[in-house]
Write a protein that binds this DNA or RNA. Structure first.
Lengths: 211, 211
DNA sequence: TAGATTGTTAATCGATTAACAATC
DNA sequence: TAGATTGTTAATCGATTAACAATC
């Protein structure tokens, strides 16, 4: 029976992963949950519980096999089988994401970008083609794309979102600062800057006031 | 006694705010928690509880005053008194953020960007100056900057982070995919793409498997 | 063996939801 | 008044933490 994984665990796993990968090649072969927890400022029980979900266990007194753990987390997160994605909205943010080479490491491959502005289309940004929106349908169905990355202005977001869904997209990574209405089986992951800013500035003003 | 606000509430407030602001000028003067909840796919009790924290209440049968609510949320989040910030790392992502005009709406003003690569420095990206890292100290102390936005490669992040803290920065918005070690009174808000991607691809593969 | 470390079971904590009373 | 809506109090749910037993 497939275990239900909470979002909070899911968000911590990449943190472990990137830390483990940042260690030098000649680091010790094993690493303990205690060490990991200390390095990342987390509770060690929590780390152990999280790791228990993805690996088949460490050894008392020794810890987890470092490289095995990396593999286990990557496999668990599905970073080993690459997902193709399309990106809509080739503005500054869109191009920044297009040019971000790090995604492949997480199993994400942006196949092409689309923009409603035909004059932007055709241009290559960091090797990836930028196409007119009219080409979306063909590409999505031909390559069975499941992930759409939305970097369009808020006002255009819902329309593009509907278009994506009509073309078989199952998951949307939404950078537009707006709420999207979607059918229940479609996943929307919001990457709302305003949200983080709120946390940031609130903490800041709280600290200033000294409470 | 200042109320302790949870992060989850803090993250929902900007969502209400942006929805309220997206309504047309001639929308009804009042809006009920019920309506808001339905539009955003949230629980109505939750909406009401959240709004209770920031406003002095709606009226039964009528709802909340729409414009008053906007003001209340903005004021609560501190969007009315602008915070100056510096951005370090004028790569693609850094420039995308620099050029993003929406921040001012959230009370954030990026004063300048810095980059260790002197050849990039001097260039203007969308009107904001890009300066060499050596100019950071002077500007931070002169303008009493409290927020630092980190868009440097992971390997450079901790070093720049330390530099920022030495220069009086109290809050760091970290886009580098790495953990930062900071003293307890410094706030780090991580904007880790890998984290969102993990949630996204996991849900996707779960759905494909049909469980 | 002793001590470090794992993994599990139980307790705590916090956030969400449900039920309901108050109000216009 | 009746019904929509607010706000509050209590119940539920889930995640984190603490305590502890098992293991190398």
């Amino acid at each position: 029976m497939a275990q239900k994984i909470s979002n909070s665990v899911l968000k911590r796993l990449p943190v472990y992963l990137s830390y483990l990968k940042s260690l030098p090649e000649d680091a010790p072969e094993n690493i303990s949950a205690t060490t990991l927890a200390a390095a990342l400022n987390m509770g060690e029980v929590q780390v152990r519980k999280d790791l228990a979900l993805v690996s088949d266990g460490g050894r008392p007194k020794i810890g987890y096999q470092r490289l095995g753990l990396v593999e286990d987390i990557e496999q668990f997160l599905g970073y080993d089988n690459t997902n193709d994605a399309v990106l809509i909205g080739a503005g500054k943010l869109g191009r920044a994401l297009l040019g971000y080479s790090g995604f492949s490491e997480y199993g994400l491959n942006i196949v092409a970008a689309f923009d409603s502005d035909a004059s932007v289309a055709g241009t290559d940004a960091s090797g990836k083609p930028v196409l007119p929106l009219s080409a979306l349908e063909d590409l999505c169905s031909r390559r069975k794309i499941l992930i759409g990355i939305l970097t369009v202005p808020a006002a255009a977001a819902q329309g593009v979102c509907d278009l994506l869904i009509r073309n078989g997209i199952k998951a949307i990574w939404n950078f537009a600062p707006t709420h999207l209405d979607v059918p229940p089986q479609i996943l929307v992951q919001n990457e709302n800057m305003a949200t983080s800013l709120a946390v940031l500035s609130k903490h800041l003003s709280a600290q200033m006031k000294g409470y």
